[in-house]
């Protein structure tokens, strides 16, 4: 992204109007609000992570103690592990499913694509809380999944999915796959249509099979879309909060606990605001770091090309 921004900034074509004072005046009102309610709090989070602080009392400086405690905090490590486990469901599966469907669609222009797009995208616009309510009903003991299993004679599989220590994490993960696969698919389909026809024609002339065409033309052509899908769904997996809050509240035990919920609980229930900000810093560093690395890598490869 950064390379991209720089590129467009310098290569704007015609000279922009050189009106610095006016430009500052136009930027200032929004920037003031942004600075006060985003930038200052970011600095605050970093600062508080070095303090013992209840959120009410005066903070006491304790250096790296919060971070040292995090390393030994089984709850935190477990929650972070669950977030990482969710990447399989939020990121890997939707991208594979999207590629699978895209390869199936190949280059055919189907009628009625608009209807498919509207439907496939629907989970993206629902509030995560609503998504949690929907899937709580689906996974309920007397819900559709168990009913279906009973009807087709698989009674042995009937179980309280969200209360089952083995199955609850998979169930919560599957909800993530449901939310994200439509986005990946819509991204990839749009991407395939932007690949130049000539590339496929050339491949055909060279006698490339459908498989080879997919591997050597479609996949490289979708590289940017795949990276974007990766970053967006990866962030979703690490930030999941509202959906789990409603679906399982982290349970059973700590099986579906996630970092965001620990941040909330530590700060607003257990009054460990300082400790909570240390968790927030770790989570943010992972999110910003991986996003930046991915997009930076993409920028570099584009410059090489």
């Amino acid at each position: 992204m950064i390379a991209r921004v720089r590129g467009t900034l310098s290569g704007g074509g015609k000279t922009p109007y050189d009106r610095p004072l006016l430009a500052y005046l136009f930027i200032l009102p929004g920037f003031a609000i942004y600075a006060l309610f985003v930038l200052v709090p970011i600095a605050g989070t970093v600062r508080y992570s070095f303090y013992q602080w209840t959120g009410f009392s005066a903070p006491t400086f304790i250096g790296l103690d919060n971070y040292r405690a995090l390393l030994k905090d089984d709850f935190f490590i477990n929650a972070l592990g669950n977030n990482i486990y969710f990447i399989l469901f939020y990121t890997v599966l939707p991208i594979l499913l999207g590629l699978f469907l895209t390869s199936l669609l190949a280059r055919s222009r189907l009628r009625g694509m608009a209807i498919f797009r509207v439907g496939l995208f629907l989970p993206q616009v629902l509030s995560p809380v609503v998504v949690g309510i929907i899937w709580r009903w689906i996974f309920a003991y007397d819900g559709p999944i168990n009913e279906f299993l009973t009807v087709i004679g698989l009674d042995g599989w009937v179980r309280p999915w969200l209360g089952d220590f083995e199955w609850a994490p998979r169930a919560a993960g599957a909800v993530g796959t449901w939310v994200e696969y439509g986005l990946c698919l819509v991204l990839f389909i749009a991407g395939v249509q932007a690949i130049e026809e000539d590339l496929y024609d050339a491949a055909q002339v060279d006698g490339a099979s459908a498989i080879q065409q997919f591997r050597h033309v479609t996949l490289p052509g979708l590289r940017q879309q795949i990276l974007v899908a990766f970053v967006v769904t990866f962030i979703a997996a690490l930030r999941v909060f509202g959906m789990v809050f409603v679906l399982t509240r982290g349970g059973p035990g700590q099986e579906t606990q996630v970092v965001s919920m620990l941040i909330y609980d530590q700060a607003f229930r257990f009054r460990q605001a300082g400790y909570s900000t240390a968790m927030a810093v770790v989570l943010s560093v992972i999110i910003v770091g991986v996003s930046a690395l991915t997009l930076y890598g993409q920028g570099r490869r584009e410059e090489d090309a």
Partner: peptide, 24 residues
């Protein structure tokens, strides 16, 4: 610099600002 500072808000997760924001 200004633009990059503003774009920072695109990647920073909300969890990273909520506690100081609550205090503020």
């Amino acid at each position: 610099v200004l633009l990059l500072t503003i774009l920072l808000g695109l990647t920073v997760p909300f969890e990273a600002i909520v506690i100081p924001l609550w205090k503020l």
